Amino acid sequence: MPPLEITASDFGQFGDPSGTFCLITDEAGHRTIHCRPGAYDRVLHLTLPPAVSLGALLAQHVPPGAHVLVACPGRFLASPGPEELGDRRLVVLPAGSTPLTAGHVRYFLKTAARTGIARQEALAEEFFDRAADTERLLITDDETGTEAEFDLAAPDCVWNQQAGVLGDGEQQIFPPGKLSVTAAEITAFSADARLGGLTGTLTLRGWPVVHRGADPKDAPGQQRLFEALAPLVNLPVRLDVAGGLITGVAPGQAAAAPAARALDDLLAAEPLYRTVWELGFGINTDTEIIPANCGPNEVYGAGHGVVNLGLGVTPATRFALAFLMPRSSLLASDGTALLGARKAVRRGRMQRVAGAGCGCH
Rank of each mutant, 00 (worst) to 15 (best):
C35A: 14
L77G: 02
L339E: 05
R349Q: 13
G252N: 01
V299T: 13
V209P: 05
A66C: 09
A184T: 14
P99E: 07
I290T: 14
G355V: 15
G282K: 01
A122Q: 10
I6W: 11
L225D: 01
R88F: 01
G29W: 08
S328H: 08
R119E: 14
D87W: 04
L57F: 01
F226D: 08
A183R: 06
D264C: 10
M1D: 09
T275P: 07
G213F: 05
L123I: 03
W277K: 13
L137C: 01
P271W: 04
V62F: 04
G282C: 08
I246D: 01
D334F: 00
E170N: 11
G295K: 12
P208Y: 06
P315Q: 00
L263T: 04
A354G: 12
T247G: 04
N308P: 01
N284C: 05
L324H: 04
T317Y: 03
A268N: 02
A230F: 13
L179V: 05
E126R: 13
P17T: 08
S328E: 06
L272Y: 00
T7C: 14
I186Q: 10
T287Y: 00
Y273A: 04
G74A: 00
A78H: 13
R194K: 11
A268E: 11
A259T: 02
A113F: 09
A118N: 07
Q351H: 13
P175R: 10
D215L: 02
L279A: 14
P251W: 07
T146P: 01
L239K: 00
G355M: 10
E84D: 11
T314Y: 14
R346S: 14
G197P: 01
G86D: 00
A332W: 07
F76W: 05
L166I: 03
R75D: 06
R106Q: 11
D168R: 15
Q13S: 15
Y273L: 04
G200L: 00
E126T: 13
C294R: 01
L179M: 12
E135A: 08
L263D: 02
G164K: 07
A316E: 11
D264Q: 10
F108N: 06
R205P: 00
A39R: 12
A344P: 09
G310D: 02
A341M: 12
P251L: 02
A354H: 15
A262Q: 00
L198T: 04
L195P: 00
I289R: 12
A292T: 08
L311I: 02
T7I: 14
S180L: 13
T146F: 03
R347Q: 14
T275V: 12
S180I: 03
I139Q: 13
H104R: 08
S180Y: 10
L166T: 03
M325N: 06
V209Y: 05
A242L: 14
V105Y: 06
Q120F: 00
K343P: 11
P220M: 09
K110P: 00
V105A: 07
T111F: 05
V68D: 10
P216D: 06
V345H: 08
F108M: 07
V241S: 01
G200C: 01
V307N: 09
L23I: 04
Q161P: 06
V306I: 07
L229G: 04
N297A: 07
H34L: 13
Q161T: 15
D265K: 08
G197V: 05
C358G: 15
E149Y: 10
G197T: 01
E270V: 05
L152G: 01
F127A: 07
A292G: 13
G197H: 03
G86L: 00
V52L: 15
C35L: 07
L266W: 05
S190H: 14
H361M: 15
T199H: 02
